[in-house]
Write a protein that binds this DNA or RNA. Structure first.
Lengths: 122, 122
DNA sequence: TTACTTGCAAATCATTTGCAAACGT
DNA sequence: ACGTTTGCAAATGATTTGCAAGTAA
């Protein structure tokens, strides 16, 4: 456990439910540890994604987003502003009655797309 | 309609259900139109994604994939080899009982993750 | 000590873009 | 003729990596 990893975790906590990009995590972490490097943030986030401490979310036309909430839930992306919202597990039901023969299911990532209230208002 | 766009469409047809990357589409298109440029393939795919002629699929740790099957269906990604399989609409049921207030749902992209039969066999 | 982690900068990969020439209609 | 599309190469943006120095255990 290094000061850098702690700064990254703290940054993720501060980001709350905003699903920050690596860049945003870097900016937040820098406030507490000004010497931290962007590469270090990437290295920590990548490792944490591998160990399951965070979830990495790929979005079309944009940088990856990170989510420290690893509980079962899904995401809904506003295609206009790019904000990502959460939908709690209890509010989604996914059932798959058939997978490719022999495949072992690991997890679902449900990414819904919407135009969010803020963007509709414009 | 240009020869280049036709070559891209033909490449997508040849790729079948393999969800090719832009690079793969380029390689296939080049067989029929050797003078075609990678940039042109990107331009065509991007435009086609905007108009809904193809679907662009963002995957973590990899290039975007394209799918000429725009019907309602889901994808399942093997986290080992990166292959993407289809799951027909009738084999998946997604229900969302609550979306962020005021948001207008556009579509779902369900990306399941698995270890596919080929990779389990190794 | 000793393996792991960092900061930095350069490298890589996917994708986009400026521009002048070529093309479709 | 005129707006659109192309090929090419250079530019961009995100992410990764090599390396020497620093740090946690």
């Amino acid at each position: 456990m290094t000061a850098q990893k702690m700064a990254v975790i703290r940054a993720l906590e501060e980001a709350g439910r905003t699903h920050p990009t690596a860049d945003t995590v870097y900016a937040l972490a820098k406030r507490h540890l000004p010497s931290i490097a962007l590469g270090t943030v990437y290295r920590n986030l990548t490792k944490m994604a591998e160990t399951g401490e965070v979830i990495k979310i790929a979005v079309p036309d944009g940088a990856d987003r990170f989510d420290m909430d690893v509980s079962d839930h899904m995401h809904i992306l506003c295609v206009k502003c790019g904000k990502i919202y959460d939908i709690e597990e209890k509010d989604v039901k996914v059932e798959i009655s058939s997978v490719p023969a022999g495949a072992e299911l690991i997890r679902f990532d449900v990414m819904a797309k919407c135009i969010c209230a803020d963007c509709k208002a414009v």
